[in-house]
């Protein structure tokens, strides 16, 4: 760290105020700063301002409370079969692969368990809805022969969903976007993307949740006849990733686009 100091007394002490505020200075330096503060109204005022902002910040962040049910969810997840942790795991590369596979299985089985227990009917209904309304795009390969231009895709997505386009372009750069538009099968509006990589076709669709609709948990995989469906949930939407790809690829697509979808405010 390079410290560029001024020549005035304040120039010497003002840079130390942050560490003084954090109680991170040596005792001798602390005394030096205190002596300076005794005789310098300007630095005292500056310190008071920083303390006031810090106190306000603590109060504001402290006003955010964890949802009451979160503790119960964590305890339930810890109880999941096979989660006898707190013990040394396997070592070496093979061991870590076992650990990774185990974590994935536990995570997704835990998530699915949670989803199915919490709201089995709605969960299945949402996945069925999405699958039946979009399976033709991917399983049957219904998409234009010529890929659309970016301008057309933005136009077809509209102002509310065009922010998703760079998410797909960036995170799924190994795929080519064959269609991006708004569709309304069954009277519900979807922002819909069809992506292609060789023989692999993936459809990503976002459905705005209606009152009370919820998957319950994000990133939920589900095998379907002729393909794979993975869903995740944001505050306002449910996103469906489906295609003629395997479960691992569908999950990967869901996981890599999810941060971007959230960052796009959906």
């Amino acid at each position: 760290m390079k410290l560029i100091q001024g020549t005035s007394p304040c120039g010497k002490y003002r840079p130390l105020l942050d560490s003084y505020l954090s109680n991170e200075l040596l005792v001798e330096t602390t005394h030096d700063v205190m002596r300076h503060l005794d005789g310098c109204a300007s630095c005292r005022f500056e310190l008071d301002e920083r303390m006031r902002v810090r106190a306000g910040l603590r109060k504001a962040v402290g006003s955010v409370a964890a949802p009451p049910e979160l503790r119960g969810r964590i305890l339930t997840a810890l109880e999941a079969p096979g989660r006898a942790a707190g013990m040394p795991g396997p070592s070496g590369k093979a061991g870590w692969m076992q650990v990774a596979a185990g974590v994935a299985v536990l995570l997704f089985s835990g998530l699915l368990f949670e989803v199915l227990v919490r709201n089995p009917g709605q969960f299945e209904a949402l996945l069925d809805l999405a699958w039946h309304q979009h399976e033709g795009c991917t399983v049957a390969g219904h998409y234009p022969a010529e890929p659309p231009t970016e301008a057309k895709m933005r136009h077809d997505l509209g102002a509310h969903y065009e922010a998703l386009l760079p998410v797909m372009q960036t995170e799924l750069s190994d795929y080519r976007i064959r269609k991006a538009h708004i569709c309304r099968p069954g009277g519900r509006e979807y922002a819909h993307f069809i992506l292609q990589k060789g023989d692999a076709l993936v459809s990503v669709s976002l459905l705005k949740k209606q009152d009370g609709e919820a998957l319950g948990r994000p990133v939920a995989p589900s095998a379907r006849q002729g393909g794979q469906l993975t869903a995740f949930e944001t505050g306002t939407h449910v996103a469906f990733v489906m295609g003629n790809v395997g479960a691992a690829e569908a999950e990967r697509v869901a996981i890599v686009i999810r941060p971007g979808v959230l960052a796009a405010g959906l």
């Binding site: 979160l70 964590i74 948990r217 505050g235």
Partner: peptide, 14 residues
């Protein structure tokens, strides 16, 4: 995002 925060905290405990 509170929903994401819940997931992250749960993952942290696991």
């Amino acid at each position: 995002n509170r929903t994401v925060a819940e997931d992250l905290v749960q993952e942290t405990y696991l």
